[in-house]
């Protein structure tokens, strides 16, 4: 599912205040403005979890401004 050689490195799933999801190396401190969501695993496991959990890639402020769900 990834476009580069899968790494054995561990990642953590993180979320920011705009409800945008991403991943971050598990051994590093999560950057300011982001919160660890709890999931830790390989890059692929984290991405799979995000695919299942993050249903609307719009930022919170765009979502609040209205429009169709996408």
């Amino acid at each position: 599912m990834l476009d580069e050689t899968p790494s054995t490195a561990e990642f953590a799933v993180v979320v920011n205040d705009e409800d945008q999801w991403s991943i971050w190396p598990a051994h590093r401190t999560v950057p300011a403005g982001w919160t660890a969501e709890g999931t830790v695993g390989s890059r692929g496991e984290c991405i799979e979890h995000i695919d299942a959990s993050w249903t609307d890639i719009r930022s919170r402020s765009v979502r609040d401004a209205g429009g169709v769900d996408r």
Binding site: V13, N16, Q20, S22, I50, I57
Partner: peptide
């Protein structure tokens, strides 16, 4: 914004900025 119907690919490529909060 990201990839329209792929949250996973979006999260994989659009990552936290290490220096600018959020």
């Amino acid at each position: 914004r990201g990839y329209l119907s792929s949250a996973g690919a979006t999260a994989d490529r659009f990552m936290p900025h290490p220096d600018v909060p959020g």
